[in-house]
């Protein structure tokens, strides 16, 4: 039976992951089955599996826009800004995890609190990037680079300060920087899974409601403006959706790897089809397959879940690239 090495480390990012479980001789050769069926382990594994599906679906749909609108770099800027947002949240005492023995209501408040603070911080960073780029004060990629390093530095300082303050007050230490950067499956609880699916549903509903003007805007922004589509609103909405998707993906994959889930499925799908609806279906399929495939890889190898999910999606992207090239390339 697997047991957590340090059950007290059930915090938002740095705590448990499959590697934190000490394998013993009772382990099944197929560890995934054990993770999903053993009552003790399933409590840690299933929320991650469910949350991964939610963030994979929403990331897959958004990734098509990210790739076609060339937003991958701004996505990186937003996700790194989320690191700064986590620092701000931790300093404010919002770690995303309720104290041991707290009610589910407190857990929800903590999770939503973290989500709100990090999303708001990320959006502020995104707006700063957009404002600098729009006014031509500096080039867009320079603006992203400046905001990216500034928020990373700020997050680093704030996380360190939060750890010192906690040590001085004799409180449990806040999550580690590694956990924030690369995520952790075991940090995902049922509350987080529900919040992730609620956020995913909100993002998908918004995209569905705006699908027609959004597609027009994404395809041809000047023409969309000339035909009455509120193009600035479309851009702002997509940025908000990206920020929300990055923040809910952050627990699983961390701020560094979150954007990979917002690029790889769409990039792979666009190699496989030239039809919009087919691309959406391919992207969601690849996103889900990559997420669950990555979790299986993580369960089987005791490697961290975030890098495994991104690695699996990367493999699928390379496969799609090869298939696309063999067929003459959809792109």
């Amino acid at each position: 039976m697997l047991r957590p090495r340090s059950p007290s480390a059930h915090n938002a990012f740095g705590g448990l992951n499959p590697a934190a479980f000490a394998p013993n001789s009772e382990l099944s050769p197929v560890q995934t089955i054990r993770y999903l069926t053993d009552p003790d382990l399933a409590a840690f594994a299933w929320p991650g599996v469910v949350a991964a599906a939610g963030v994979a679906v929403v990331g897959s749909v958004l990734s098509i826009f990210v790739v076609l609108k060339r937003l991958a770099f701004i996505g990186q800027g937003v996700s790194h800004a989320a690191f700064g947002g986590v620092g701000v949240a931790f300093i404010l005492g919002v770690t995303g995890v309720a104290a041991v023995g707290a009610s589910s209501h407190e857990a929800l408040v903590q999770d939503l609190g973290l989500l709100a603070i990090v999303t708001a911080f990320s959006l502020l960073a995104a707006m700063a990037i957009a404002r600098m780029a729009r006014r031509r004060q500096i080039e867009a990629d320079t603006a992203i680079g400046v905001v990216l390093v500034a928020t990373m530095a700020l997050g680093s300082v704030l996380l360190d300060s939060a750890a010192r303050a906690a040590a001085k007050a004799g409180r449990p230490p806040p999550p580690s920087i590694d956990g924030v950067l690369f995520g952790s499956l075991a940090s995902v609880g049922w509350t987080n899974a529900i919040v992730a699916w609620a956020a995913a549903a909100g993002v998908l509903l918004t995209l569905w409601m705006l699908r027609r003007p959004m597609l027009f805007w994404a395809f041809d922004e000047p023409a969309a403006e000339a035909y009455g589509v509120p193009t600035r609103r479309m851009g702002a909405v997509l940025l908000v959706l990206l920020a929300v998707a990055i923040v809910v993906t952050m627990r699983l994959a961390g701020v560094i790897l979150a954007t990979a889930m917002l690029v790889l499925p769409g990039a792979a799908a666009l190699r496989l089809s030239m039809r919009w609806r087919h691309v959406v279906v391919w992207s969601v399929g690849i996103g889900l397959l990559g997420a669950w495939g990555g979790l299986i890889l993580s369960f089987e190898t005791d490697l961290p879940a975030g890098p495994c999910v991104v690695g699996a999606q990367l493999m699928l992207f390379l496969a799609a690239w090869t298939v696309g090239a063999a067929r003459g390339g959809a792109r």
Partner: peptide
């Protein structure tokens, strides 16, 4: 024409 012609449309 400033459309993103890579779109699968």
């Amino acid at each position: 024409i400033e459309a993103e012609l890579r779109f699968p449309l």
